[in-house]
Simulated scan of single mutants.
Amino acid sequence: MFYDINIGLSGVVIVLLLLTFNAVRILREYQRGVIFTLGRFTAVKGPGLVFVIPGIQQMVRVDLRVVTMDVPSQDVISRDNVSVKVNAVLYFRVVAPEKAIIQVEHYLEATSQLAQTTLRAVLGKHELDEMLSEREKLNLDVQQILDAQTDSWGIKVTNVEIKHIDLNENMIRAIARQAEAERERRAKVIHAEGEKQAAQALMEAAEILAQQPSAMQLRYLQTLTQVAGDKSSTIVFPIPVDILTTLLKKVANPSGLGGLGQ
């Protein structure tokens, strides 16, 4: 009799221990538990020790950490009809666990698919040059669209980064030719601007020398000094025409030159 009672008590104790073991849940700091009682949403619990009534309540774990998701390479046709392959990386986290479980099935997969379609839609509205030079603006546009659409799912998109834009070989060569032509254009513009500034400086210098004829003689002497310092056997020195005219007149009229010597 007592043996049967002891067996029965032992069985009850074992059942209670099993129920207690199944009722206890331990959630980490970055986890939350969405509790359903008889199929209806009850509360969000955690972190720490959580009790769930076996058979009556169910708990779904949700991770609140930032998820890094790679967006697969997408075929995109730009607004100027250039075909490129674009891949990106998406950063998001769950801010409302109950919405992430109730409002959408498999929120990770849903967010991935939405990111792929949004990336194609946004980049298809821009030209190739904008894709290559305005990545920050495109990242912000994709992030804002994703954040607005996933808000009802309890998901916050924190950042979107376009990693790589893959071009075919023909387009790469075309861009290289365009860049080379742009560099040549800039070189010609800079050269023309230098010529313009040099001409302006020469005009100002000529005006100054014209006001003082003696300054021209000093400039000749300075030039002669510079040429004489070089290791050259031939010196070409310009002489003003008015000086040559005076010398020719003196040679043609020796008496005048003698009178000048006296």
Score class of each variant (00 low, 15 high):
residue 95 V to D: 03
residue 199 A to R: 15
residue 35 I to D: 02
residue 92 F to Q: 04
residue 103 Q to E: 12
residue 8 G to T: 09
residue 14 I to R: 05
residue 234 T to H: 12
residue 14 I to L: 05
residue 104 V to D: 02
residue 251 V to K: 15
residue 166 D to N: 07
residue 55 G to Q: 03
residue 64 L to A: 04
residue 242 D to G: 04
residue 58 Q to R: 14
residue 12 V to M: 07
residue 94 V to H: 04
residue 130 E to D: 11
residue 243 I to F: 13
residue 84 V to I: 14
residue 81 N to I: 09
residue 83 S to Y: 06
residue 175 I to H: 00
residue 44 V to P: 03
residue 180 E to M: 09
residue 11 G to A: 13
residue 12 V to K: 04
residue 186 R to F: 00
residue 11 G to L: 14
residue 127 E to T: 13
residue 106 H to E: 14
residue 146 L to E: 06
residue 213 P to R: 09
residue 67 V to Q: 10
residue 83 S to F: 01
residue 182 E to S: 12
residue 246 T to Q: 14
residue 210 A to C: 02
residue 11 G to S: 11
residue 201 A to T: 09
residue 3 Y to R: 13
residue 227 V to A: 09
residue 191 H to S: 13
residue 115 A to W: 05
residue 202 L to G: 03
residue 143 Q to L: 13
residue 71 V to W: 00
residue 94 V to M: 04
residue 108 L to K: 13
residue 29 E to H: 07
residue 164 H to F: 06
residue 7 I to N: 10
residue 19 L to D: 02
residue 96 A to N: 14
residue 123 L to Q: 03
residue 231 K to Y: 10
residue 26 I to H: 07
residue 84 V to T: 10
residue 132 L to A: 06
residue 153 W to I: 02
residue 175 I to C: 05
residue 41 F to S: 00
residue 106 H to V: 04
residue 178 Q to G: 05
residue 164 H to M: 03
residue 32 R to V: 08
residue 38 L to N: 10
residue 76 V to K: 07
residue 150 T to I: 05
residue 33 G to V: 03
residue 141 D to A: 13
residue 253 N to P: 01
residue 169 E to P: 02
residue 53 I to L: 15
residue 114 L to E: 05
residue 258 G to P: 01
residue 39 G to P: 05
residue 259 G to T: 10
residue 148 A to Q: 15
residue 107 Y to G: 02
residue 228 A to F: 05
residue 212 Q to I: 08
residue 23 A to E: 04
residue 167 L to E: 04
residue 136 E to S: 09
residue 173 R to Y: 09
residue 258 G to Q: 14
residue 74 Q to Y: 00
residue 228 A to D: 05
residue 133 S to V: 02
residue 241 V to P: 08
residue 215 A to Q: 12
residue 175 I to E: 09
residue 101 I to N: 06
residue 46 G to E: 08
residue 213 P to H: 09
residue 216 M to A: 13
